[in-house]
Design a protein around this nucleic acid. Structure first.
Length: 371
DNA sequence: CAACCGTGGAT
DNA sequence: TATCCAAGGTT
């Protein structure tokens, strides 16, 4: 890692902020410095691209214009507003924090990074972002952009995938950040990271800070940031049950913790949970599911495969391959042993579905007709 | 600390 | 298709 003199730091600040003043992106959450606006946008932007967030942000502000509106919101309306954005605990933490602000802080936001981190869903990055943008506090906001930009500028060799590395970057950036315009400085770094200093296809030769980019000057920019690779997602094979009656389709509520917590979905059966025997044929596996529906839930069901190929969906750490099975039950069947309910397709639009459930429904509707 | 938590876009 | 990346936080 190289170090900058006080003179060089001043020159960098000037160059960066001059560029930002003339080239900053026009974004809905940049119209003012209202902490509620800054906060909601920062939560939505966690691990999510700007162009994805924009329509969600605009809709969210129509539904919940103030922190009080968010605190008072019914959960189903909140989740419906978040539908499709992913990482759904962000939405639940958002409302938790809104209630913290309204009750614990009587509507007056904490204005420094330390206190902001006490709110649900606000970690070191988001605390720094809100403190600097909304409250003009001179603190670093170390996100993926800051890692990438400063790793290249200063040839920082620490592995950005390791949690402890954040401290190194915070220390460096807190020295370089503009004390007069910390919010603009942090946002300028992000705009830089989203334009000339992207992860791939970067264009450093035209960057406004190319003269400060040591890795570029040394021709080794592709070596930064240093980051160890992630593990591959674990594959899960499931049967997805599309069970119909005159009361609608059978849905099951997912557990209150873990992936897609509390979402309603078609019932899923993990092949691994059915048997350890890898040699069983698919028809034998289907018979096991039928037997399980009978013994565990008192539901007499005959199932048959709907599509040749499974519906696949990849999360960050899991890949699901779901083979769809369909069946029918009489409307007066006793559902009291099954942890689920009938839902009519007419109300699907009012529910919050995960992407994978939407895929299952879509694939099922496109099934070959039985003529 | 390492593992977990969604989705869409780019390559 | 597989992999990585995108304004990270929680456990």
């Amino acid at each position: 890692m190289i170090e900058w003199s006080e003179t060089k730091i001043k020159a960098f600040q000037q160059t960066l902020l001059d560029w930002y003043d003339h080239n900053k992106r026009t974004l809905p959450w940049r119209q003012d410095h209202n902490p509620y606006h800054v906060w909601v946008s920062e939560i939505m932007l966690q691990q999510t691209q700007v162009q994805t967030v924009i329509p969600y942000y605009l809709h969210f502000m129509e539904e919940f214009p103030t922190v009080q509106d968010l605190a008072d919101a019914p959960e189903d309306k909140l989740m419906k507003t978040w539908e499709g954005l992913g990482y759904y605990s962000r939405a639940r933490n958002l409302q938790k924090a809104a209630r913290q602000v309204v009750t614990d802080y009587h509507g007056k936001w904490p204005s420094n990074a330390h206190d902001l981190q006490e709110l649900s869903g606000i970690g070191p990055y988001t605390a720094g972002a809100i403190a600097s943008i909304a409250f003009n506090q001179p603190v670093a906001a170390v996100d993926g952009n800051a890692f990438r930009v400063f790793a290249r500028l200063l040839e920082i060799n620490a592995d950005v995938a390791k949690p402890q590395t954040r401290k190194i970057f915070e220390k460096v950036i807190n020295k370089i950040i503009s004390k007069d315009r910390p919010g603009d400085f942090n946002q300028a770094i992000m705009d830089l990271g989203a334009s000339y200093m992207t992860a791939t296809n970067f264009d450093s030769s035209h960057s406004p800070v190319r003269a400060f980019n040591q890795a570029f000057l040394d021709g080794i920019e592709d070596q930064y940031p240093v980051k160890t690779k992630k593990k591959r997602p674990v594959v899960h094979d499931y049967f997805g049950l599309v069970i119909r009656s005159d009361n609608g389709y059978l849905f099951q509520k997912r557990p209150s913790s873990g992936i897609l917590a509390n979402f309603w979905m078609f019932p899923l059966f993990d092949h691994q949970d059915l048997t350890d025997d890898q040699s069983l044929s698919k028809s034998a596996l289907i018979q096991i599911v039928e037997a399980k529906m009978q013994s565990d839930y008192q539901l007499p069901i005959k199932l048959s495969q709907v599509l040749d190929k499974p519906v696949t969906h990849t999360f960050t750490h899991q890949q699901w391959k779901i083979t769809l099975l369909e069946g029918r039950l009489p409307e007066n069947v006793d559902l009291s042993y099954f942890p689920g309910k009938w839902i009519q397709p007419a109300v699907f639009d009012e529910m919050t579905f995960s992407k994978v459930q939407s895929k299952l429904w879509s694939a099922y509707q496109k099934r070959p007709s039985i003529s």
